[in-house]
Amino acid sequence: CLLSIDPGITRVFFGSDFITVTKSEEASWDFLKPEIFAAIMDFYASGKPLFLDSNAAASMDTAIHEDDSEIVAMIKELLETRIRPAVQDDGGDIEYRGFDPDTGIVKLKMQGACSGCPSSSVTLKSGIENMLMHYVPEVRGVEQELDNGDEDTLLNSQMD
């Protein structure tokens, strides 16, 4: 595991064709880079799969269930087909966390390179919110949902 290389690595995110590694401010890329590269190459040479069932896990959050409303199904479809590929091109991903029909707010979580990126809130508001509101009139806004610990990472990256 890349996180066991050094306590300076704070987050590792795996995409379909990329890996994003986030380090602490104190850690040095000069030291981490060769260690990370070696760990990736060792794993790649092992031939083991990264995930046991990567196809099923890749889009579980946007899988449409029979109890989803038509609005939620449209939101998930847009996230999976239009928004997620664009975010993944920038080394991140996006996770659907829910829709409140009373307020019209879609809850999303930015992941990978996008989770600590200061421009992620602009991406969320300008790009994602505008697209969802355009195609799904019931959507009135998009909010980022943070897990415990993400608030500190986001605040620190915005202060830099």
Score class of each variant (00 low, 15 high):
112 G>H: 00
126 S>H: 13
10 T>W: 00
147 D>F: 00
57 A>Q: 11
147 D>T: 01
136 V>K: 11
6 D>T: 10
26 E>F: 07
107 K>M: 10
94 I>C: 00
105 I>Y: 03
155 L>H: 04
5 I>H: 08
40 I>P: 13
83 I>N: 04
158 Q>F: 06
123 T>H: 05
40 I>T: 13
2 L>P: 12
128 I>R: 03
89 D>M: 12
102 D>S: 14
53 D>C: 03
23 K>R: 15
53 D>N: 14
31 F>A: 13
4 S>A: 11
53 D>F: 06
118 P>T: 05
36 I>F: 10
64 I>K: 07
49 P>H: 14
17 D>G: 14
24 S>D: 12
153 T>V: 15
69 S>A: 12
33 K>Q: 14
133 M>T: 14
64 I>G: 04
126 S>W: 08
126 S>D: 13
99 F>I: 04
68 D>Q: 05
24 S>G: 14
14 F>W: 14
88 Q>F: 08
91 G>N: 09
27 A>N: 08
37 F>L: 15
84 R>G: 02
154 L>A: 10
41 M>N: 14
119 S>R: 08
15 G>A: 11
21 V>H: 13
134 H>V: 01
24 S>A: 11
124 L>H: 02
71 I>M: 04
102 D>N: 14
74 M>N: 13
2 L>C: 13
128 I>F: 06
157 S>P: 01
143 E>Q: 10
156 N>G: 03
59 S>W: 01
